[in-house]
């Protein structure tokens, strides 16, 4: 149990970030803030994966003479591509936000839902 705190601390912080991201997604009215929350949720997953890849006294997985102990490169490969794909999908989300702002003049969900029976002005 004495090992648990330093040994599991990374996971707990990752879970803390999950929860923060989840709260930002669930309870924000501002859509840009929702996207920030989604980013945080995503980076919590990244942290979890990279944590599992770390090997005690290991080195970065670049083969060199005299080094025989490496951290696990597989999570690195997964997460490296996930980050780039992540920013691309975030951009799609933000593009939708821009279109919503064009149509409704706001990115606040409450203001959009409160608007009674007004056809949104579709801007081509």
């Amino acid at each position: 149990m004495t090992d648990a705190i330093p040994g599991l601390f990374n996971y707990w912080v990752a879970i803390g970030l999950f929860v923060c991201g989840l709260v930002m997604i669930l309870d924000s009215r501002n859509m840009i803030r929702k996207m920030v929350g989604l980013n945080m949720f995503q980076s919590a997953v990244f942290l979890l994966f990279i944590t599992m890849g770390k090997v005690e006294n290991g080195h970065a997985p670049i083969l060199a003479d005299g080094i025989s102990r490496f951290s696990n490169p597989l999570p690195h490969v997964l997460i490296l591509t996930a980050i780039v794909v992540g920013v691309a999908t975030t951009a799609v989300g933000l593009a939708l936000v821009v279109r919503i702002r064009r149509a409704y003049g706001t990115v606040d969900e409450d203001e959009i839902f409160d608007r009674p029976e007004v056809e949104p002005e579709i801007v081509p």
Binding site: L8, W12, I15, G16, F18, V19, L26, K54, E56, N57
Partner: peptide
């Protein structure tokens, strides 16, 4: 959010410790 977090923390007790080779 809290229920999800607590369940996940509960799950970590079966996870490998940080850096265990």
């Amino acid at each position: 959010a809290l229920a999800t977090g607590l369940l996940l923390v509960f799950g970590t007790f079966d996870m490998p410790l940080y850096g265990d080779p």
